[in-house]
Computed example of a mutant assay.
Amino acid sequence: MKLEFFKNIQFTKLIKAEGRLREFNFRNHLSPVNKDICSINVTDDRGNRIIFEMQKQESGWKITQSKLPMWIMENENNFQEVIEEELK
Rank of each mutant, 00 (worst) to 15 (best):
E86S: 09
G47W: 00
F26D: 01
D44E: 08
K35Y: 10
I51P: 04
S66I: 15
K13E: 08
R46F: 10
G19T: 03
N25Y: 07
Q80K: 12
Q65G: 08
N34G: 01
N28S: 13
E23R: 09
I63D: 04
L30N: 14
N34Q: 12
L21G: 09
E53H: 14
H29D: 15
F6D: 10
W71K: 01
K56Q: 09
E23L: 07
R22T: 01
I9M: 06
A17E: 03
E4K: 14
K67F: 14
D45R: 11
M70W: 10
S66V: 15
N28D: 05
E53R: 11
I9C: 02
E18W: 07
R20N: 10
F5E: 12
W61P: 00
K13C: 07
A17Y: 03
I51W: 12
L14C: 07
W71G: 01
R20K: 13
E81D: 15
L14D: 14
G19P: 01
V33T: 15
T64G: 05
M1K: 15
F24A: 01
I37G: 02
I37P: 02
K88T: 08
L87M: 07
N41V: 04
M70D: 12
P69V: 09
S66Y: 15
I72H: 00
E81G: 08
N8M: 12
E81H: 11
Q57R: 10
L3R: 14
E74C: 04
I72C: 02
W61E: 00
K13D: 06
N77L: 12
E58A: 09
Q57S: 08
E23I: 07
R20Q: 11
G60H: 02
I83M: 07
E84G: 07
G47M: 00
M73I: 14
I40Y: 03
I51C: 11
T64S: 10
C38P: 00
I15C: 06
K35S: 09
I83W: 01
I15T: 07
K62E: 08
Q80F: 06
E84S: 05
N41F: 07
F52E: 01
K16W: 04
E58T: 12
M70I: 11
L21V: 08
E18S: 12
K67M: 11
I72R: 00
N41P: 05
T43A: 08
M1L: 15
L3K: 13
R20F: 05
T12S: 09
L87Q: 04
F11G: 00
N34E: 15
K88N: 07
F6V: 06
N75C: 05
K16H: 10
I37A: 04
R46M: 11
E58Q: 13
D45I: 09
I9F: 06
D36A: 06
M54E: 00
F79E: 00
V42M: 02
E86M: 08
I9S: 02
D45M: 13
E81W: 07
F6P: 03
L87C: 03
M70Q: 13
S39E: 13
F26Q: 02
D45C: 12
D44S: 09
N75G: 05
Q57V: 10
K67T: 13
F6L: 06
M70T: 13
